[in-house]
Design a protein around this nucleic acid. Structure first.
Length: 106
DNA sequence: GTTGTGACACATT
DNA sequence: AAATGTGCCACAA
C-alpha cells in the first residue's frame, strides 16, 4: 500500500464532504493531516483528475468565497450547485457558520 | 538541482 | 478596518 502523495489524501477528504456542506482549503488540509497544505489542496483541485468524484464546488477558501479562477464552469455554476444542495449564497459567499463542514458526523 | 508559481491561511503593518 | 507580506508544501520549467 502506498500512501501516494498529498493529492490522494486531499481527494479522500474532499470526497468525504457531506451533502449540503462546504469546507475550506485549510480545513481540508487540516483534516488531511496537514494544516499547511492549503495551497496544495488548491493545486490538487486545480488538476482535479476526477471532477465527478471530487465536488470541488463544495470547496471554498477561508472566506467561504470562491476563487475567480474557478474554471470548471464558472462561479455561477458553483453557486447553482451549492444552492441545489440547499446552501444559500450571498455575493458568492457561503455562510460558513452554517454550512462549514464540521466533524459532527453522528 | 534550482527557481518560480500557485483554486490558501495567517500575521503584521 | 483594509492591504501587504510572509509561510507552507507540491509541482512545472
Amino acid at each position: 500500500m502506498k500512501q501516494k502523495n498529498s493529492y490522494e489524501r486531499i481527494y479522500e477528504v474532499v470526497k468525504q464532504i457531506p451533502y449540503g456542506k462546504v469546507a475550506s482549503y485549510g480545513q481540508i488540509a487540516a483534516l488531511a493531516g496537514n494544516p499547511r497544505w492549503a495551497r496544495v489542496v488548491g493545486y490538487a483541485l486545480h488538476v482535479n483528475p476526477d471532477p465527478e468524484t471530487i465536488p470541488c464546488y463544495r470547496v471554498v477558501n477561508r472566506e467561504g468565497r470562491l476563487s475567480e479562477a474557478f474554471v470548471f464552469g464558472g462561479v455561477n455554476q458553483q453557486k447553482a450547485l451549492l444552492e441545489q444542495e440547499g446552501i444559500e449564497i450571498a455575493d458568492n459567499c457561503v455562510d460558513m457558520e452554517r454550512f462549514r463542514w464540521s466533524k459532527m458526523v453522528y
